[in-house]
Nucleic acid binder design. Structure first.
Lengths: 181, 181
DNA sequence: CGCTAGATATATCAGACTGATATATGACAG
DNA sequence: CTGTCATATATCAGTCTGATATATCTAGCG
């Protein structure tokens, strides 16, 4: 799902500014399955406006910078619904953490242990944050997503606790082998 | 981890051609946590060669097009080890499937059911493929990654079976509400 | 009081990357 | 003979990231 389609989808749910869309993607339920930079969001909104899929209204604010509120049009609704009927493309996933595990033979053991500890903490933190997000679920889709993300992070914590010995033991063997030489 | 660093890492393990690197990323253990296009791999290898981090040897082949074999240099080894010492960046994840679940209120129920069925099948297929990949694990990192991926896909299948009713029930209610109107 | 950091807002841009396409050799199936 | 697939190389238009820029205001700290 490209950034324009994602913006359309969020605007189906609620009119928003570019800044609010970025916040929804960063902190809301959409953060579970999507990310996009401001560098992509603002041009996408401009393009959607040019194409007549959304409208843009500039508003002044007290004590705040002026803002641009985007609303989806009927044409935009139709375009989004057509997009949803396309087959979903494959997930896109890149993990520096898993890459580090893949190349763990090339790193010092102390570094490996540090990364594993940080990763367990990261997943535990995300789990706690999701308990709060769960209160904010307003549709079955959001509930489903939150439960999915909680399952994901909980199973990652458990997997790390149960399997990190595989990597740590090997490093001990490596270090011992080095000491013997 | 950008494409140049990933190429370096794979070349630490084994000299390879651009085509072989793409295959390793698509079919090997690296596919669990990474993807990159040929459009990024070939320019990355060229840049690594220019920077002296790898060498490039052109070989003729019988019954096959000529190939370019890349080997890492000592400078490349050092660069890669330095890269591994940097803090891992956040995972990058985009899921069209989860996006479809997020926007499921905007799609017909038949479509939703179809997507859920396909997704269960996808995870089951990946699980079967990983059982084969497991036989090919040659390091503790590869074993760890394979187990991680198997856990990931198995828990996704289970989660879908146990939770898809949330989405399907709501759609039934929506459809029934529409029928009543 | 002044400074810094953060939130709220908009936006741009160099460089990295995707996905499609192109060309080429050869094997295999229909 | 044709089409598809595997093995190989490569390019490129368009998309996107991550950093940066500018601006208004509030809150906290010394």
């Amino acid at each position: 799902m490209d950034v324009r389609t994602m913006c359309l989808g969020l605007l189906v749910k609620q009119e928003a500014t570019g800044y609010e869309i970025k916040k929804a993607i960063t902190n809301g339920h959409a953060s579970i399955f999507y990310d996009a930079s401001l560098g992509a969001i603002y041009p996408a909104l401009n393009r959607l406006t040019e194409d007549g899929l959304v409208t843009c209204e500039e508003l002044s604010q007290d004590k705040r910078p002026d803002k641009k509120v985007y609303r989806i049009t009927t044409k935009g609704m139709n375009t989004f619904e057509m997009a949803l009927l396309q087959p979903p493309t494959a997930d896109k996933f890149r993990s520096d953490f898993l890459a580090a595990m893949f190349f763990c033979g090339q790193m010092p053991e102390s570094r490996l242990v540090e990364i594993l500890d940080e990763r367990e903490e990261f997943h535990a933190d995300r789990l706690a944050a999701l308990k709060e997000l769960e209160q904010e679920s307003q549709s079955v889709g959001e509930t489903f997503l939150t439960r999915y993300a909680m399952m994901y992070h909980a199973s990652n914590v458990q997997f790390l606790k149960e399997n990190r010995y595989l990597l740590e033991a090997d490093q001990n063997e490596d270090d011992n082998a080095e000491a013997v030489q």
